[in-house]
Design a protein around this nucleic acid. Structure first.
Lengths: 338, 338
DNA sequence: CCCATTTATGCTCTTATTGAGCAATAACGC
DNA sequence: GCGTTATTGCTCAATAAGAGCATAAATGGG
């Protein structure tokens, strides 16, 4: 009852450039299996997260493997690395459908400073919110929530035969997208992605169902309707891993001073706030943000000033590493504005 | 450069019985390798966490595998399952030292109600704090911290030749055990265990170094001194996984209503508080705890009463599942008493 | 039956945190 | 000089949270 097993490492490498949260991506190496050439295959998605098969003999720890993969690919030094989750659902890699080994992957989150990618592997930065347009609330409530998501989720709920299922779907939709008047919870990134996946609102869901049908998985049938697909898709379960990373990042931001790993040694408080906002996807109250950073002991002034601000020059601050210890209050960033 | 790879699942199954937090353990199946019979091997530790090799063909998800392992072994239904971490450090399984495959394991946390174990696999409950006596602050600051840990950590710091290392060790010790007057942080369970491991205060650290020396790992030498060992050891990296589980559990307790998975459908507020205290390892202010539970909407009265309390009868409450949604305030339990 | 004991429950008081906004400061370009 | 832009300082109110006092409702011993 064994079957083959393959363990991969996948890294979500995040930086923030001028208010844009970005992720390192590579071209997907997916190849259409021999037996299916010419058939009605879904087009392979080209964006993929960088990763590699874990070589047991080569690294003492998984994290060493991650660093080697990521730094080799991008030439950028990882300033923070954290294990996210191990993704092991069957068929997460389409090759499994055609006799390939069961492919598990350990996902990692890595933070880097905003630097150009030096590697030669065809890696490039991309705006994180290209994949999750509904997650960026900095300007305003994203329009596609009301114009596309809500109606589609309502149709999806209504489509369930069983009233119990119907109620559960409605409730999940309300919870994930704060439709019941509750405030938006920026952290539920994965919950939202999975809901959209199940409701058939992201292309991957159709791709996977079609592949399963082609591979002859019991009970699988190619979906007929193809509603408007949301966000830029990724190969395999890349977007699920990315959603996990964003969720973790948003959560951690709140009580651990990890933003600073994304910034140069000296920065203005405005720049710092911009980075936080880019990742949390919300706007913050400027004065309160400053108060928390300073009185919380996270930063200290350098004495130097930045005068390209367009207004009054802003003082440059540096991160106080000791702040990690003092930890008087737990919070590391304030709540979003109402 | 491949080498073999083996993926295991390991489960930390937690319940609370009458104020005692307990974990399911099995007898370790470690066997002394042929080549080393009769040599000066460290005695194998008998307590082990339940687990099994993951069979790729058999389960659709890792979590299904975990449920099968855990419920098959104990006969107890898992009420909550969460992936913890994937442990992949080289030599976490001693067999690797003697030519065995690289053994990774995906660790899971599972919560169950306090029930007798029905399985036939030799599984049994054990007090969690047998393994971490320094983590239980319910009665008072554990005496062994001042009598054993602090002096030993001071010796360990002083033993470093390099002044930088010395300073770093001192700082880590202060941070982990709150020696600088900072309040005890119950969540740093893993940090503390790893510190004690590095400082040679838990037997596993000596065991591992002896094994590595026997297996001829470069740079490894059997330790000479054997200071007082703290807490009950476990096979392999069981205690590291257990520490990870306790840390996660303590953290999650604070902002997610998962305590209720450990309780019967109806319970007194006192019982609820006991369970939280057992896991957090601290005492809570009774009135404030009640206030938070009730005003936070986590519980509602059933109307029935419990009169075996020894004093005034206590009302029985039940968990309000909807509380998960309302989530007005984030907190799910108050801070510890000062 | 009264009373000490025990545990549950209700309520107040004080302080710290935090959301929100007003106002002043210090640069720039015309 | 003056409008513009952005930084910085400060106040105020609402809320959450820590701590303790007081009362209620059971038990058991004299």
């Amino acid at each position: 009852m064994g079957g083959e097993l393959q363990l991969g490492l996948t890294v979500v490498i995040v930086a923030v450039a001028a208010g844009v949260p970005r992720v390192v991506e590579v071209r997907s190496g997916f190849e259409v299996p021999e037996a299916l050439r010419g058939r009605d295959l879904p087009p392979p998605h080209r964006d993929a997260l960088p990763g590699a098969t874990f070589e047991p003999g080569r690294f003492r720890t998984l994290q060493e493997g991650v660093r080697a993969v990521a730094e080799g690919l991008t030439g950028v030094g990882l300033r923070y690395v954290e294990q996210l989750y191990t993704f092991g659902d069957r068929f997460r890699d389409p090759h499994e459908l055609f006799g390939g080994p069961r492919a598990l992957s350990v996902g990692y989150l890595a933070l880097v400073r905003d630097e150009p990618i030096g590697g030669s592997g065809g890696a490039a930065w991309r705006d994180l919110y290209d994949h999750f347009p509904w997650e960026d609330w900095r300007e305003e409530r994203p329009a596609l929530i009301d114009s596309v998501i809500v109606p589609a989720l309502e149709r999806w709920s209504a489509a369930a035969e069983d009233p119990g299922t119907r109620a559960r779907r409605t409730e999940r939709a309300q919870l994930a997208f704060a439709l019941d008047g509750a405030p938006w919870d920026g952290e539920r990134v994965l919950q939202r992605y999975e809901l959209l996946y199940e409701a058939g609102l992201v292309v991957e869901s159709h791709r996977d169902r079609r592949l399963e049908a082609l591979a002859g998985v019991a009970g699988a049938s190619a979906p007929r309707d193809m509603p408007r697909a949301l966000g830029r898709p990724m190969a395999r379960d890349g977007r699920r891993i990315l959603a996990t990373a964003l969720e973790r990042l948003r959560g951690k931001l709140k009580y651990r001073p990890i933003v600073f790993e994304l910034l140069p040694p000296a920065f203005t408080l405005h720049r710092l706030q911009q980075v936080v906002e880019a990742l949390s996807g919300t706007r913050l109250h400027k004065q309160n943000f400053r108060r928390l950073m300073i009185s919380g002991g996270f930063v200290e002034p350098t004495g130097a000033f930045e005068n390209q601000t367009g207004g009054r020059p802003a003082e440059l601050y540096r991160f106080r590493r000791q702040a990690v210890h003092e930890r008087t209050s737990t919070r590391a960033i304030p709540d979003a504005e109402a």
